[in-house]
Design a binder for these strands. Structure first.
Lengths: 110, 110
DNA sequence: CTCATTGGTTAGCCTAGACTAACGGTAAGT
DNA sequence: ACTTACCGTTAGTCTAGGCTAACCAATGAG
């Protein structure tokens, strides 16, 4: 998956996570998102562009305002990547633990 | 959860993900991890330090070598954070879709 | 004891990207 | 037409952090 990198780096920025945190409770216009955040509105606008390209948000124009939603698609692929990673890593961990146990057993009776 | 930020920023770097990808198949010493990567060994060592502080790897000294394992704990908390986020975001998305459907229905019979 | 191997650490350089200021563009109200 | 509100974009600055080179510490072999 190529855009996994884009997804993770999009989630890496604290301001961007704060934006998503606000959107978690429902759709919001840009101005309302920027209110309460320690950055200016253009900064929020740039972050929303990154989040959109990563597939984490969707936008919709209503009059002069632009409403942003969370896109479940992005979170889904992120979850899939993490799950795939988690499974094989856990297998490797168990295997390593078993190998260690065998080594310890061999050491015992010598 | 405070170290979620540290976890995500640790996963954000491509080199660090490549290191984890190598460790996914089993424990490796530092030199073997660095072999095949486009960076020098000290760079890998620095990345391993970050991954260790984030709770993503564990290390164990064997003679003059240092073996690195993947720590399932870090991946677990990462998964928990993502799940929590995913659930409430999906709820918000469904709610927004319903509101939109009601608006459309109202528009229909006027 | 000497030397080779394996790794962690530091200083310094350099690029990616987060931020603000200023501007332009569009929709609604008067 | 004029004004106000809301938003995206660009130029430019500045900091965080990734990289290498050089150095030091520890272990094992001879």
């Amino acid at each position: 998956m190529a855009n996994t990198a884009r997804l993770i780096s999009a989630l890496a920025d604290p301001t961007r996570r704060a934006v998503l945190e606000k959107l978690k409770d429902g759709p919001r216009p840009v101005g309302e998102i920027a209110r309460g955040l320690p950055v200016t509105r253009p900064a929020v606008s740039q972050h929303l562009k990154v989040l959109k390209e990563a597939g984490l948000v969707i936008d919709r124009s209503v009059g002069t305002r632009r409403i942003y939603y969370i896109d479940p698609k992005g979170l889904g692929t992120m979850r899939a990547w993490l799950d795939q990673f988690w499974d094989s890593a856990l297998d490797a961990f168990k295997l390593a633990a078993e190998v260690e146990a065998e080594k310890a057993a061999k050491k015992d009776h010598e």
